[in-house]
Each structure stands twice: as structure tokens, then as C-alpha cells.
Write a protein that binds this DNA or RNA. Sequence first.
RNA 1: CGCGGGGUGGAGCAGCCUGGUAGCUCGCAAGGCUCAUAACCUUGAGGUCGGCGGUUCAAAUCCGUCCCCCGCAACCA
Length: 508
Amino acid sequence: MSKNFYVTTPIYYPSAKPHMGHAYSSIVADFFARFKRNDGFSVQFLTGTDEHGLKIQRSAEKQGMEPKEFCNLISKTFKDLSKTLNLSNTDFIRTTEDRHIKSVQNLWSLLEANGQIYMSKYEGWYSVSDEAFYQEDEIETKDNKKYAISSGSPVEWVEEESFFFKLSEWEKPLLKFYEDNPKFILPESRRNEVISFVKGGLKDLSVSRKTFSWGIKIPSNDEHIIYVWLDALTNYISALNYPNTNDDLYKSFWPADIHIIGKDILRFHAVYWPAFLMAAKLQLPKRVYGHGWILSGDEKMSKSKGNILDPLEIIDVYGLDTLRYYLLKEVSFGNDGNISQDKLESCINSDLANNYGNLCQRVLAFCEKNCEFKIPTHNFTEDDLKILKPFEDIDKLRNLIDNQDINQYMSFIIDMLFASNKYFNDQEPWKKKNDKDRLNTIVYTALELIRKISILLNPVIPDTSLKVLNIFDISKDAFSLEQVKDHNFLKKDIVLKKLEILFKKIDK
RNA sequence: CGCGGGGUGGAGCAGCCUGGUAGCUCGCAAGGCUCAUAACCUUGAGGUCGGCGGUUCAAAUCCGUCCCCCGCAACCA
């Protein structure tokens, strides 16, 4: 059985600086990558930047820079973000890299050779300021001039020579593919959306532009550059050394296990991307997960509302792990979620400080005073085995993760945290000072609980969980999900290490 | 008839697909414990599950209809 796992984030369009949405996609993808790695998988985890297109070209011009120079600059802020978020990505791709350009041109030639591309004319009402084409019914006439109804901006009739991709031919095959692979698009509500979109009919897709130059040239015609989405989507295989399909990376990791994306770019990933791949006779990714948006309070974050929460600022004030924990636990994965300082603070206080942090603290302090700060002996009773039992079924957890049920996974952990605190409370080791054997066993069990929970929390809060595992002298690559099952993992007499306060409570 | 998401105790959410005692976290009240970051544990108060109608022995859950909120409307996670 192949123990390989390939997860991707979208490649980010660096026309503006990173925001919470970027952070969210990345953190979620990182969570899956880390979980799988802890479970013994060889993991390929890709993120990067999407650097072509008119917007970039213009932003660069505004700054008086060459596009490439401009991209170097902005791409770096995204690379920095992945460090700040403690992403465990194995690669960072830029669409301006040679390996990608080569890959896209190759895919293009393949599509052309397969008769999937033809030359025609793109025509329609075009708004320069919106950078968008409008249908006849989307424009209105005022004073003999045409305007887009939605934006009110003036439109002009534009005819442009363009290459088209025969997307319409793939309508039926796509529908069949969705049918045969009911979990290709998740969550289900998004899948329904896509299916009804495709059933509504697909038109051939314009896949080249000649009005601007910042992009990848079509091998057979250097007047045209390749449509940004055909360019961008290909990154997922460029990073595996496509077009060399005999390459080890490609053979091991394609098709991808999951593309993590935001719901706004679902169509490109769930319709165009599979169509391109089918047309090129390449394998399709196994899953596309379109998550929701992170709202600020109840509103969409926007500059005009001034309610933007900058991930970097939050991390600066509250720390990274708290943000990671919040986003993974508090947001119902697949739906829109929201974040506010107030909610983040209560989450830190109740879940992280009072529940997890305090559990570690009370058990260790007790162990220090009563067991010389060493792993004590143990002799389990029914009570102990009962509290440990839920950790035996890690297949259940694997299953949750394979279905991207992050929230159930988190609630298992939280249930166990409550149960552990209750266990320590109910066993009252402080009243067992004359029964050393029992006292030791209670402490041992509590330490085991902390160890198990910390391993489960590792994909969520990697730094903090490592601090805790460290007290048992368990280091970065020295633990696995499998070890969660083992109730006798901790070896007697190992001297524990001091643990600082994990999460300070925030005064509100 | 544009598309989608949502309306569940004070707040935030789960449950709805596969009908059958309404669940979780926070907050609040009372009690317990004292190992711990005034943390932890127990109990309790608080909901006619947006309105109306239907199906059913039984509906938050299925069907119909209406009201309200929020996004999106092809290149912004």
C-alpha cells in the first residue's frame, strides 16, 4: 500500500499582501500534511505564488518595476508568510520559474496535439476598469453609451483573436466523473453547485490573450500568452517535475490526494482543471475541498469597513499556535467562519490555558511534589483503562481526517481534555498519599493522557505540543500517531523536564 | 422566478441527508475540591429549533409556502 500523500494550497496571487484567507488555506493544508506525516506517510505539501496576468503587470508598472522584479518582491512576502505560519511545505513554486513554464508549455502542446485547442475570435462588451467581458443582458444603454449594469462602468465592443479550449466536449465526461467519484468535490453542497453549473452547459473557454504580455508564451505562436488559470492550475504537476511523467516525484504523488482551496475558486479546480487533465489524458486529482471564508465578526473583511484582521498582527500579539488552534477548531470546516479578537481571546483562555495548559501544569506540579518528577510505576485499574480506552481506536481518527472532518477530530481531542481533567479530579491523588502505588498509577495515567493528547494536537499546534512532548524527552521526529494506542509507552524513572506556562490567560 | 449559505436557550455553533426523549462551548447561579494558570469537578436556571400549512403514530429533521439576514453573480483564500 502506498503511504504517499500529496496536499496543495492554492498558489496565491500576489497583487496584494497576504490576508487571513491565505493564512487559513495554508494552515488547513499544513494540518493535513502534518497529520499524515505523523501517521507515517511520505508527504508532499506544495504552496506558492501565481505571478502572471494583467493585474500583476499593471501593479508592477505602477511601481515603476519590471514584472519579474515586482514578483520577486511580493512572492517573498508569501514565502515569509509560510515561515511565519510554520508551514511544513516541502516545496514552494512560483509560476515564473523555468520548471513551471516548461510544464505549462508542454501541457499546452499536448492539448493542441490532442485536438483540444482551436483558433477563433473572442468578442463581447468589455470593461477596461472591471477587466471583464459582459453578456448582452448585463449591459445597459444610457445617452447612447453602453455601461455594465453591475458596476456602472463604460464598456466597449472588443473583438480579439484567441485560442479556445474545447471545454464543451467535456461536459458529459465531467458529469460522469462527478457521478463515479462522489467525494471528488467536498463539501457536498459545493459539489451540487458545480454539478448544476456543468449541467447548465459549458461553453468553450478562451485560453489565450494577446492584449498584454506578462505570461507564458504559446509555443506555436508568440503573439499569444496562455490564460492565467491554465497557467496557474498546472503548478500542481509542475512541482512534481511534469512533463517528465516517469519522474519519481510524479509517479509517487500524482494524482494529488487533495487540493485545498477557497470556495471562490472552486469552478476552476472542479471544472476547468479536471477538463484540462482529461483532455491531456492525465490522471485527475482525488479530491478538491472548497472551504468557506473567514469573516470578521459577521461581515466580510474589507478595507472600506476597516475590519480587517491581519494574520501577521494577530500572530504578533497572540502567537501562532493560538491562531492555528482557533481557525481549525472554531471554524466549521467547509462553512464560512468568523474571527474576532474577543472570540480568539475566549478560545485561548478556556481551551488552551484552562483546559490543555492547566492539565499539563497540575499533573506535572503534582508529579514533581510526589514522584520526584520522574515517570512513576503503574498498575492500571479499571478506572485507568477506561479513560485510556478511547485512544485505542485511532482508525476512527484516520477516518475523520480522510474525510476532512476537522471539527470532529478537534472535538474528540477536547472531549479527551475534559475527561482527563475530570479523571484527575475524581481520582483525587492528593488524598492517596498513603497509597503510593495508587498515587503513582494515577500520575502515570495522567501523564500518558497528556502524551497522547499532545501527539493528537501536534498537527494543530506544532510548537506547543512539542514543548509538552519534550518533557518526556520525545523530540520532533520521534513520535507517531501509532504510539497513541500504546498505554505503556512512558518508561519508568525517566526524569521529566520543567514545563513553562503554555498559554498565558488574557485579561479581558 | 439569477445562484448559494444561514435563521436552534444571553452569545457562538452541532444536529437536519438515514424522522422517535433538543446537544456542545462560552456566559450565568449554587455547591464541591485544593494538585493546578482564581484554574478543575458536579448540579441547576434558560429554547413552542424564523412564521404558517401539510405528510406521519411521531418533525428541528421530510414536503409546500412566506418572512428576515449574509455572501456571490466567471478570473479576490
